[in-house]
Design a protein around this nucleic acid. Structure first.
Ligand SMILES: [Zn+2]
Ligand SMILES: [Zn+2]
Ligand SMILES: [Zn+2]
Ligand SMILES: [Zn+2]
Lengths: 166, 166
DNA sequence: TTTCAGTTTGTTACAACATAACATATCAAT
DNA sequence: ATTGATATGTTATGTTGTAACAAACTGAAA
């Protein structure tokens, strides 16, 4: 697996990584919390692409850097990164992705491609507004939203069509 | 735990159970699939209330009826009930609830109360429509949706207010 | 600089969730 | 009787996540 990604909108992923790391560093400084070596390494591993990453995969991949790493090592780092909003947990996959909208508080809609495994995070303002209305109607006080859609992304759909023709 | 439930809209839960069981029986007959003793017992256990139920809790509770029950026993029954649309898996809880809208094909919005553990299933047509639009915009082909909202339900909110006053 | 509190990490053990693989049983149609 | 489809029994294992306590680190107050 190279650093490249199948994310539907083609992009320079080096930028994604740089932005994510720089912003995390900046926010940790502002908040007076520590982006320790372990936490930064986990964040970097998650950002290698736009796939959802499993905790135990991270554990295997961090061992060359942190030979003492155990499950708790990873889960603690993940807890921290989630608390800071740097990553999201994908409930329906038991996995984790880097947050693409670090700067703005947001509730995310996740489009999960079952073919290429990319996860796209979309603001989906219209959806969020109709959701807010629904909560009002129900008298429900929201603490956390998980909106996770599984299917086939635009890129893979197009690829599949091309293959049918060929 | 009695048969009663804290579901926000007060209701006669005996009706919920009867409807769920009768409809499941009817649909299995129509579809030529078997609602075996194990499958029906699991469905009944899930329908004891509107809480999300864990697989291993079901395992403990079915053992008096099925002394040979093992994890696979439960997970097979759950797979069947999900495939038939009789129950839903709650991804963010690793748990299961009975479906309240058996008759109509539907995508569900789940309101999960962290205080009383009830899960309310809402059609939320406006939300579903704006979601559909978002999928169009993204060129995304949907296979499965999980829309799970954690928070405090209307009933618990009201109870909490009452306690503050008292 | 010592001391102390708060935070982070190391380490062991275990809990909770889920599936693979293969054997056995059931039952209806040929 | 044989066969094929479905369901269940059984054992083992894989995957995901946490509890609990000890040790190390960090930075500021005494
Ligand atoms: Zn990228
Ligand atoms: Zn794809
Ligand atoms: Zn009910
Ligand atoms: Zn409640």
């Amino acid at each position: 697996m190279s650093i490249s990604t199948e994310l539907s909108s083609p992009h320079n992923h080096t930028n994604c990584i740089a932005t994510a790391l720089n912003t995390a560093t900046q926010l940790c400084f502002e908040r007076g919390v520590q982006l320790t070596a372990i936490r930064q390494q986990v964040l970097e591993l998650i950002w290698e692409n736009h796939h959802a990453v499993k905790a135990y995969d991270l554990l295997e991949r961090i061992k060359p850097l942190q030979s003492a790493a155990k499950p708790a090592t990873i889960y603690r780092a993940l807890d921290f990164l989630i608390a800071q909003g740097f990553i999201h947990r994908v409930e329906s996959l038991n996995a984790f992705i880097g947050c693409c909208n670090l700067k703005t508080a947001h509730e995310q809609l996740l489009l999960i491609c079952k073919q290429c495994n990319d996860v796209e995070e979309r603001p989906a303002n219209a959806v969020m507004q109709s959701l807010a209305q629904e909560f009002q109607n129900a008298g429900f006080t929201v603490h956390h939203q998980a909106i996770e859609i599984q299917g086939i992304c635009a890129t893979c759909s197009q690829l599949n069509k091309d293959e049918e023709i060929a």
